[in-house]
């Protein structure tokens, strides 16, 4: 497991990193926690000419309240998100989701920014990022812009972040306690065969699904079926959850057929809603 030759640079600031990306273009790849990039490089599936290690850029790892939201630095590790009292108190879904990622070693190294940009169709965060309606800040040669969660996951392993941009911050709104992430893991990798993230608030129910299709998505059918309902009865929840994979082109592989993935999306959506309600 020996990667092909690459050059290694370690910028000290975001500005410097952006310049390096502009200079090297497609040949450069950003390294943060390295849990997707390094295995791909070792298999020589990824062969960047230049690895730009942004792991030591200062001030990109933090979790703090800003107005009604919680701002999370892009380089914050899954372990820090899992353990964050601020998140557990104000917006617990992301902390719960982080606890489902990989194992302790992965959570200690992997970062939220790196995971989101990689846009793995079975990663855990995307479901919650969608359900939370999070905002993602990116910085590039054209300056800073903010991407909404619904616009972020574009396609298989493709986010809305351009090759010359860097994610700097993720903002999630403060929520009630009525949130939950329920996942069925793929036994080998620990990634999601189907993961459902649910946020139940005054504005209604928002549901994000990961693992099922080429990208994570908002379960619009479920949300619509529950919109405006004052009492979420088990029967209503079950009927609504049955829409969790409606109209979705589910993936199939040796670990689960499209049919099973779609089914798990429904089951986990129902369970996530039920679980969230127990936290009221």
């Amino acid at each position: 497991m020996f990667p092909a030759h690459f050059d290694y640079v370690r910028p000290a600031t975001v500005e410097e990193a952006v310049k390096l990306l502009a200079k090297h273009g497609d040949d450069a790849k950003l390294l943060t926690g390295g849990h997707s990039l390094i295995p791909a490089m070792k298999l020589r599936l990824a062969r960047p000419q230049v690895v730009v290690d942004i792991g030591r850029i200062a001030n990109l790892s933090y979790i703090r309240e800003t107005g009604g939201a919680i701002a999370i630095g892009a380089m914050t590790t899954h372990a820090d998100i899992e353990a964050s009292k601020t998140l557990r108190d104000k917006s617990p879904l992301l902390a719960e989701t982080a606890s489902h990622i990989g194992d302790a070693q992965v959570r200690n190294k992997g970062t939220i920014g790196g995971s989101l940009v990689h846009a793995d169709p079975a990663a855990d965060y995307p479901a919650s990022i969608l359900a939370l309606d999070a905002e993602i800040d990116v910085v590039g040669p054209r300056g800073k812009r903010t991407i909404k969660a619904v616009d972020f996951f574009v396609d298989l392993l493709q986010s809305a972040v351009a090759a010359d941009e860097i994610v700097t911050e993720i903002r999630v709104p403060a929520t009630a306690k009525t949130v939950a992430y329920v996942k069925t893991e793929q036994k080998a990798s620990g990634f999601a065969l189907a993961g459902a993230a649910v946020v139940i608030g005054p504005g209604g129910v928002r549901v994000g699904i990961t693992g099922v299709a080429a990208t994570a998505y908002r379960a619009a059918g479920v949300e619509k079926a529950l919109a405006g309902q004052t009492s979420l009865t088990p029967d209503l929840i079950a009927r609504a959850s049955a829409q969790a994979a409606a109209g979705v082109d589910a993936l199939g592989d040796i670990h689960a057929s499209p049919e099973f993935r779609a089914h798990l999306a429904q089951v986990n959506t129902r369970r996530a809603i039920e679980k969230a309600l127990t936290r009221a």
Binding site: L43, L251, D253
Partner: peptide, 17 residues
């Protein structure tokens, strides 16, 4: 080869794309 060995999750979706 490698794409078959490690890519089962992605090959089908990538081919469609």
């Amino acid at each position: 080869g490698l794409i078959a060995a490690i890519g089962s999750r992605l090959v089908d979706a990538a081919a469609r794309k």
